[in-house]
Simulated assay, not measured.
Amino acid sequence: MEARTSREAKRKSARSAAVLAAMGLFIVAMFVISMNTGYTRLAPLDVLKTILGMGTAKQELILLQFRLPRIVISILVGAGLAVSGCVLQGLTRNALADPGILGINSGAGLMVILFVSFFPTNADAPVYLLPVLAFAGAGLAAALIYVLAFKRHEGLSPTRLILTGVAVAAGINAAMIVLTLALDPQRYQFVAQWLAGSIWGSNWSFVSALFPWLLVLLPFVIWKAGVLNVLNLSEHTAAGLGAPIERERLMLLGASVGLAGSCVAVSGGIGFVGLIAPHLARQLVGPRHQILLPASALAGALLMITADTLARLIMQPSEIPTGIVVAVIGAPYFLYLLAKARS
């Protein structure tokens, strides 16, 4: 029996490793395709020459200053939002939890819109402040949702949490619409693109502003994977195993809010990534968070880079916001999950 269990565990581990490797290869393939996609086509050989420093000035400008930062940001944002959604699903034990649906993205977006209403977004200092402000807005929204959804004798009901998050998100979105009425046409155009999920932070300054947040928070969340496994059980079971439930839940919730807020600061109002990617990863590698979290990050990165490439390809020479492409994929999937949960 022990030998059979050991063989089964090795088989699952090998399958999970193969899935992670396959997703990594798909990301590399999409990275190469995305570098060659755009209004000005660059042949693969031209891309290679430009990376090696042998391209023309025009090719270096297109690839190194425009395309590569956006590709890197789409990968980072996809990974961050996916892991944030995976953590929320584990904390709430609710398959429909997502930073966009729960209103966390809206809280971050409100702070970003307030900021850009008064300050230019092309200055170096404001660029590095944006993730901090977005984290503050996301944290305030999360705290409000937590307070409204929590009941002393019943705890945190997953259904009540979802409904509260939807209501808070609707209120924040209404406030953002009111704020846009006082903006000048240029800033209004920016806000409209941001709300549609356009990856507006597409230069290396935004990459350097976002990367430290993910560099700290992603390893922290993966380090807490065992705690997430315990918290994914019932409250009584987790308490019986000796887990300090509220402290661990608040730390993981803070990490999830930090990931979502920092990503929203540079990507705009992109939803559904934190919902779809963890579900796909769970179907492929199972529920253990030690594997599920890295798989979710890779799935989110793959989803975002694919959606961003399609957004730049579908309507050339124009492009559509990446958030719309993700929504076209995510909305039907969300309805499917909702119908499945009801049944």
Rank of each mutant, 00 (worst) to 15 (best):
V266Q: 01
L215D: 10
P317D: 09
P244W: 10
L110W: 06
S267E: 08
K12N: 11
I27M: 07
I104A: 03
V207W: 04
L218A: 02
V230R: 06
V116N: 07
P244D: 12
P212K: 05
T5R: 14
A136W: 08
R7E: 14
V207S: 02
A29M: 11
G38L: 02
V19P: 00
A265E: 05
L110H: 01
A108P: 06
D124P: 03
G85D: 09
G80P: 05
W213T: 02
A265W: 01
G226Q: 13
N203K: 11
S234N: 10
A108E: 06
A196F: 08
P69I: 04
R249I: 04
V166M: 06
L252K: 06
F206C: 04
I314P: 00
L48F: 11
A142G: 07
L20G: 03
K49F: 05
H236W: 04
F135C: 13
L156V: 09
L148D: 03
L102I: 07
L250D: 11
A182T: 11
R15K: 13
V328P: 04
Y146H: 14
S84I: 01
G90I: 05
K10Q: 12
H279G: 01
D124A: 13
I172F: 05
I324S: 10
A134C: 08
A192G: 07
Y336F: 15
L140A: 14
L68R: 08
I245H: 01
Y39G: 04
I291R: 14
Q65Y: 10
Q290M: 13
A138F: 00
I314V: 14
Q193R: 13
V207L: 08
Q89C: 13
A17Y: 04
M111Q: 02
L228E: 09
R247T: 07
R11D: 09
R312V: 05
I75M: 02
A108V: 08
T56S: 14
A3M: 07
L68S: 08
N173L: 10
E319I: 01
Q65M: 15
L110Q: 00
L195N: 10
L284S: 03
V83I: 15
D46Q: 15
H236Q: 15
V230P: 06
L181I: 12
P158D: 13
P278K: 07
Q89I: 09
L102Y: 00
L144S: 06
F118E: 12
Q290G: 14
R249E: 07
F220D: 07
V28C: 11
V266N: 04
I329F: 15
A29H: 09
S157D: 11
L250F: 14
E8M: 11
P185V: 07
L156A: 09
P126E: 10
A22W: 08
P44E: 07
G271L: 04
G197R: 00
A14N: 09
P126C: 06
F66R: 07
F272C: 07
K224M: 15
F272M: 10
G269I: 08
I222G: 11
N122D: 15
